[in-house]
């Protein structure tokens, strides 16, 4: 009896719905979820206009868009930072090289007694020598100037003395010279007139 009952129950497993029914029922159910119930239609009617009513303000949209699109992304921040660091390194290297070349050109390395590296060796970079040169130079210049000024002062004094003493004699001589010249000029004029006339 139990075995028969088991067999019957197991055979019930084979019962399947009609495929045609399954197909139609499935379509109806799925269609029902797509087409809205009256309440859902009401919700659509009420809520759909919110798309227009609750639109963002154009001013906000414009400003927000501009700010966002001008913002660098994290990868771009790194790239910009790398570029700027590299530019800084290049600039510093260029300045350093320029400074070194200038130093070499003016013989600055001679300060370090690296004679082979400096094309021009100036003794004046040696401070002790420089000081002694300066000291002697000033002294000599001053002496020469002093001698010159004292000499010229003496000569001027002599000339003035002579001028004051001999001034009357000099004047007479000048007057005599002038008279002689005038008489000569008159004779020349007479001769010229005779020739012309």
């Amino acid at each position: 009896m139990d075995n028969q009952l088991l067999k019957i129950l197991k055979s019930l497993k084979a019962i399947e719905p009609n495929p045609e029914f399954t197909k139609r029922s499935r379509a109806v159910i799925l269609a029902a979820s797509q087409t809205d119930s009256p309440f859902e239609n009401y919700l659509i009617k009420i809520l759909r206009p919110l798309r227009v009513l609750f639109a963002p303000h154009p001013d906000f949209t414009q400003k927000s868009r501009a700010i966002i699109l001008s913002t660098l992304k994290p990868q771009q921040y790194l790239a910009v930072l790398k570029n700027r660091l590299w530019d800084g390194v290049k600039y510093s290297a260029a300045l350093g090289l320029a400074g070194l070349l200038l130093l070499l050109a003016i013989g600055g390395l001679s300060y370090f007694n690296i004679k082979n590296l400096s094309p021009v060796i100036l003794t004046s970079f040696n401070t002790q020598k420089l000081m002694s040169e300066v000291d002697s130079m000033d002294f000599q210049i001053k002496l020469a100037e002093a001698r010159y000024y004292s000499q010229s002062a003496k000569e001027v004094a002599v000339a003035l003395n002579e001028a004051s003493q001999n001034s009357s004699l000099i004047l007479e001589k000048e007057i005599n010279d002038l008279e002689t010249r005038e008489s000569l000029d008159q004779e020349i004029d007479k001769l010229l007139n005779e020739i012309i006339l």
């Binding site: 868009r65 966002i68 913002t71």
Partner: peptide
Amino acid sequence: YISPIYRFILLKVGNKHEAEDLCHEVFL
């Protein structure tokens, strides 16, 4: 997408200024 996202946030927070701030943060 600005309009639907803004609307979604606005209808959830109920305040226009807060919705604008949050919307900006979302797109950023």
